[in-house]
Design a protein around this nucleic acid. Sequence first.
DNA 1: ACCGAGCTCCGCCAAG
DNA 2: GTCTTGGCGGAGCTCG
Length: 320
Amino acid sequence: MGHRIAVLALDEVYSFDLGVPSRIFDAALDERGNPYYDTVVCTLDGNPVRTSAGYRMAPEHGGEAIERADTVIVPPTRNCPAVGTGTIDPRLAAALRAAAARGARIMSICTGAFVLAAAGLLDRRPATTHWIVTDRFRALFPTVRLDPDVLFVDDGDVLTSAGAAAGIDLCLHMVRRDHGSEAANGAARRCVVPPWREGGQAQYIDRPIPEMSAQGTAPARAWALSRLDRPINLGEWAAAGRMSVRTFTRRFREETGQSPAQWLIQQRVDRARHLLETTGMPVERVARETGFGTAMALRKRMRAVVGVAPIAYRRAFRTP
DNA sequence: ACCGAGCTCCGCCAAG
DNA sequence: GTCTTGGCGGAGCTCG
């Protein structure tokens, strides 16, 4: 069996967040259609817990699922004691610490980060949580390097994500990290969600629903994607969107949460990943086709965004 | 390792 | 009065 994931339901767990991991991970399939992950929902002692939505959830697994898991996921709960007092049930803390100590990955969604922090798993480490509880979190856990502005934070064996839907982004990110962007794209397609948003993207976007075509920067983004292999400077890009440079950059950030240049690098890296995974194209050529120009520029960006060099990325994810 | 030219981002502000 | 636009310039970055 593949990678085992245990989603830990605590009392008054939010049912939406509880359901996200199994939905995404069950949709991550290899080229033969076999699942990469084995995802189960459990409670600490195997007993039913209340959900936030007025029904009880009777799990088929208890603490043993946590002991076996390669990844443990903590979704948020309503009236979470960790948010109120900064403390949690000692048995819960012990179970999470034991899992981390044996090398399991620990991940939280939304205010689940309070539980990880209360278990001492985030001390002096970078993390995020829902933007609305930023002050509360800082007051309770001053040693955690909280970044309230991003969708999720991947610190290797500890991953935290922002409010609700950012859990989807983090799950997709994990699939991508483990099995490459083709696998993550496949899972996203099967779940009919957008392929992904990068972790660094802003939590708070003025206009979350980018209006279709209308006015706005959407047509300019499409234009950029159609000529991604060529250099694009801000002036001509803004002109393509029929706006001044100032208005263009302003609207762009409002609509995407990223600056135009950041977004462009993101798109180019995404395309480079795709080419590295699905073709044997030399790195120099991949760099040209993705608008980076030189292999050196591509290497630099890959390292910054993905953390590995192009060749290493291909070795890890090329499907024969 | 360093440097300078050029580009990007964004706060500020005046104009529509 | 309020909102949007876009020019300006400084800080910071990238590239050769």
